[in-house]
């Protein structure tokens, strides 16, 4: 083997591996701090994600909602400055959706949270202590994850309950 091959091949391999592992993570437009909002502002999950208990799909609040508190800056944080910029321009924050259930599966937040009394943390992880927004799902969105919980709680595991 030539000398240059000894260097080039492992380098390519490392690039390939690093590319694969990073492909599933995203960087969000604002470094939103869940912990601060929960502990210092005293907010709960459903104060901002208002549709969780009543709708199939959960929601991320829009700038109109954030404006209730952040119309003028409350701190000298650079991240808040970005938010205020979006509010003043009345532009939606380009959040990247991280948790995405495939369209062949029926998933309803209302059914799980409101009717099934599943805690948010059971699927989304320890959000209360998160200082940065989601860059990738806390738990992988795989069928086995759903089945494990359904079996543990003795809920219907018939395929057609969720598949469509």
């Amino acid at each position: 083997m030539k000398h240059w091959e000894l260097f080039v091949i492992p380098t390519f391999f490392l690039f390939f591996i690093s590319g694969c592992s990073d492909s599933a993570s995203f960087s969000q437009p604002i470094a939103y701090n869940h912990k601060k909002h929960i502990e210092e502002a005293g907010l709960g999950c459903f104060d901002c994600h208002t549709q969780v208990l009543t709708h199939q799909k959960a929601n991320i609040p829009n700038v109109e909602f954030c404006k209730n508190c952040h119309e003028t800056p409350m701190t000298d944080s650079k991240e808040e400055e970005k938010l205020v910029g979006y509010i003043q321009e009345n532009q939606p924050i380009p959040w990247i959706q991280v948790h995405r259930v495939p369209d062949h599966a029926y998933f309803s937040h209302r059914r799980h949270v409101s009717l099934g009394k599943v805690a948010c943390q059971d699927c989304h992880g320890d959000v209360n202590n998160m200082t940065l927004p989601f860059s990738k799902p806390f738990y992988p969105i795989k069928m086995q994850f759903c089945i494990t919980c359904h079996e543990k709680n003795r809920v219907n595991t018939d395929c057609a309950t969720c598949h469509r």
Binding site: H104, C159, A160
Partner: peptide, 12 residues
């Protein structure tokens, strides 16, 4: 299934 619907599971 138990309710008599012949289901088709596409990913399977």
């Amino acid at each position: 299934n138990e309710e008599g619907i012949v289901a088709q599971i596409y990913p399977q």
